[in-house]
Amino acid sequence: MDEGPLKNKLASCSENEIKPTAWSIGHRGGGTLQFPEETYESIMAGTRMGAGIQECDVTFTKDKSLVCRHDQCDLHTTTNVVAIPALNAKCTVPFKPAANSSPATATCCTSDFTLAELKTLCSKMDASNPLATTPAAYLTGTPGYRTDLYARTCSPILTLDEYISLVDDLGLQFTPELKTPRVPMPFPPGSNYTQAAYAQQMIDTFKAAKIKPERVWIQSFLYDDLLYWLKAEPKFAKQAVLLDESGDEAGTFPSAVANLTNYAKAGVKYIAPPLPYLVTVGKDSKSIVPSVYATTAKKLGLKIITWSLERSGWLNDESHGGYYYESIGGVTNNDGDVFNLLHVLAQEVGVVGVFSDWSATVSYYANCFGL
């Protein structure tokens, strides 16, 4: 990290006891940099690193049970499903080896399987090998800045009920994200399992577990889900979080900023864009400053959460952090710059929480600055 007041302040906290903080949110558990995501192990790692809120990305199975998966159709990269012939055959797109310059392919969704079938799978680091000619080879490909060291035991997929029980026992807060379905709704076609029924099922699961709404930060990328909760579940909707990636495509960022006004008028209280939406390079071409998105959200009274720290590779290579640092890549040149970003997010943007794949970084900063 570059020498300066921030480095000195952070160094002064090196012997402090790190306590859990709600400013540190465990992304997919918070230990995802080294442990398979959405698992008991990732949640426990993130918790030990101070995450005060834990995430479960919620999706549904063929028999409409709710489970924790970051994407409804990521089983082929996050579990060993393609290596189990009987289950691979049930995938939306079963494993097909690389051949004739075409990459290996597979698409396996939670909705392809019953809960009982999913419980036979083992979680793995999210990766695949596009050059694979066998299922075993397809399961490799973990990036060099991550590791398979702690993925050698069979960690089962968690149900939403199991996640709730675990996080409740740990005394932490919850942030379940209702994943956008990758299959047509209602599911199956003609049934009564509509998007609204799915959104309600997630809330009902927390009610059945007797979890108070103030401990739960429900999330979705679908604006219609927020509108449904605001009307049907106002107590839970007080902390409902609208995840926003509407400015990703070329030319769409101005409209993403403009849409903030509509969200605020509708009663949305929390907005959660990715890191690069909130910061930009200052006029001096050296500093990190709040973006127009950040300043607009604050003027509208929207509280801001952001994602996801420690999801990038090295910050000192040619990528300069990739997507999550693209708005400040020109001033990102060493791994210590993660704290420069956090400092602006905390002190100038005023975010109320940060998702992270390795909770220690956010927790350390939050504890050092009393957040």
Rank of each mutant, 00 (worst) to 15 (best):
F206A: 06
V82R: 04
L131M: 08
A83M: 08
A209Y: 05
T21K: 03
P290T: 11
G282K: 09
E214Q: 12
G190I: 13
G336T: 14
F369W: 09
F206K: 06
N340A: 13
R182I: 06
G144W: 08
A294V: 07
T77N: 12
A250Q: 10
T153F: 12
L172S: 07
S128D: 09
K96L: 06
C13T: 14
E214G: 11
P103F: 07
P274A: 10
L260P: 13
S155V: 03
G336P: 09
K265L: 02
D317V: 06
Y145Q: 10
D2V: 13
A258C: 01
Y150N: 13
A272D: 14
A106G: 09
S65L: 01
D357V: 05
P213D: 06
T107C: 05
A237V: 07
I288Y: 02
G301N: 00
A89H: 05
W23P: 03
W307R: 00
A132D: 05
L75S: 11
D225I: 01
V352G: 03
C56S: 13
L260V: 07
Y365C: 10
T105D: 03
F236M: 08
N333G: 14
C68A: 13
V292T: 15
D168H: 12
E310R: 14
S312E: 15
Y138Q: 10
Y138G: 07
C73H: 11
T79F: 13
S363V: 11
T261V: 11
S287N: 05
T21W: 04
T110F: 09
A266P: 00
P85L: 04
Q200T: 11
T140K: 14
K231Y: 02
A346G: 14
K303A: 11
W229K: 00
L149D: 10
P85V: 04
P188W: 10
S246P: 01
T175F: 02
Y193M: 12
L278W: 12
A232K: 14
L10E: 04
R311A: 02
Y138N: 04
R152Q: 15
I218E: 00
L33H: 00
T194R: 10
A116L: 02
V351R: 10
S12G: 12
P103H: 03
T147D: 00
P274W: 03
A106E: 11
F206Q: 09
G370H: 08
C109M: 08
L118W: 01
Y40C: 00
V81M: 09
S12A: 15
T92I: 02
A232N: 14
V257C: 08
D317S: 12
T77S: 15
T134A: 12
T120S: 14
T107W: 03
E318R: 11
K238S: 09
V268T: 12
M44W: 00
E233I: 01
V241M: 09
N333S: 15
G50L: 12
E245L: 02
C73V: 11
W23A: 14
C368W: 02
V216P: 02
V281N: 10
G322A: 05
A196Y: 12
A86L: 10
Y277T: 05
N340T: 12
F221V: 01
D284G: 09
Q34H: 14
R146M: 15
N316G: 10
A232P: 04
I157Y: 02
L309E: 04
F236S: 01
W314Q: 10
I25G: 01
V279M: 13
